[in-house]
């Protein structure tokens, strides 16, 4: 029972890492990016390649995955994404689905459609009993990384100069640029950072979720659930939503294996009916 809870928390934390980049672009920059999973997939494949071809240790691959995905975001933001900030959500959806499809086909072309495996180092594969609860070491690592990330993000957004610039740029782009804030640069870094986190999530999650070219589409719905249920005005909203989703999904699969993903989808629909702005957003949100 507690083990399920623990696994659910780890699963949810992982979802949070994967989705919080999307929460940033969607909530702060108001851009619907359905290709978000593609950045996560990029991180996953970077890890697989770096480990098998370069022989790097797993932990060294994590920052690498972050950097590559962030770089990818840094290239794509000014060339493609920036033109779409002012367009309708419908255009953004079409555009980012297109990008996701292209990513899927490209990875399929270069890497083949088979599922890739990540060989975890020995010390991460074990399991410990702590207070009668079996905890996988890898799950513990995931929870640690994600908790650090969540706290860090919250601090960056609320306490640093960059965070206040970003919030200013989002609230009123014109006034912000009038005050001398380089809005384009702020958005560029935010987007790259969000993509980088997704890449990190992809690297961490490759072992749990499995990694194959359809990854961006398969998990798109999960990211969207996290973001839309959690609301996009805070970091804590998506965090709680992903924990909830993780625990519900793991418990659902354990107790009612026949029901498959029904539980998740139905819960999402009910929550969105009940609170269209998300479960944890205050007031009407932005």
């Amino acid at each position: 029972m507690l083990t399920i809870l623990f696994d659910g928390v780890a699963y949810g934390m992982l979802l949070f890492v994967l989705a919080c980049g999307l929460a940033i672009t969607l909530g702060l920059m108001n851009f619907v990016n359905l290709a978000h999973g593609a950045f996560a997939m990029a991180g996953g494949y970077v890890t697989v390649l770096a480990m098998s071809k370069l022989g790097l240790p797993f932990l060294a691959c994590l920052p690498l995955a972050f950097l590559v995905a962030a770089l990818l975001g840094m290239i794509l933001e000014p060339t493609l994404y920036r033109r779409l900030y002012g367009k309708s959500h419908f255009d953004q959806v079409l555009f980012s689905i297109g990008l996701a499809f292209m990513a899927v086909a490209t990875v399929d072309f270069f890497m083949g459609s088979t599922q890739q495996n990540i060989r975890l180092p020995e010390w991460l594969r074990g399991r410990s009993e702590i207070g009668g609860v079996g905890m996988g070491h890898y799950r513990l690592l995931i929870i640690g990384v994600c908790a650090a990330l969540a706290i860090g993000l919250q601090l960056i957004l609320s306490k640093t100069r960059f965070g206040s610039r970003l919030r200013a740029a989002v609230d009123d782009t014109r006034v912000a640029s009038g005050l001398g804030i380089n809005v384009n640069r702020v958005f560029l870094f935010t987007f790259a950072f969000g993509s980088g986190i997704a890449g990190l999530g992809g690297a961490l999650g490759a072992e749990v979720f499995g990694l194959d070219p359809t990854f961006p589409l398969k998990f798109m719905i999960y990211f969207l659930i996290v973001v839309s249920v959690g609301g996009t005005t805070t970091i804590t909203g998506p965090l709680l939503a992903s924990l909830l989703l993780g625990i519900a999904d793991v418990a659902g699969k354990y107790y009612f294996p026949k029901m498959g993903a029904f539980v998740i989808y139905s819960v999402m629909i009910v929550i969105l009916l009940w609170r269209p702005q998300g479960l944890f957003s205050r007031g009407s949100g932005k």
């Binding site: 619907v32 969207l224 839309s228 498959g260 029904f262 139905s266 999402m268 969105l272």
Partner: peptide, 25 residues
């Protein structure tokens, strides 16, 4: 009922959700 409330994003989500539920079924 599902598409009457909420924003574009909510609508995208619930329509996608309904299709996924049918696919699962």
């Amino acid at each position: 009922v599902l598409i009457l409330r909420g924003t574009d994003l909510t609508r995208l989500m619930v329509t996608l959700g309904v299709a996924l539920i049918l696919l699962e079924l």
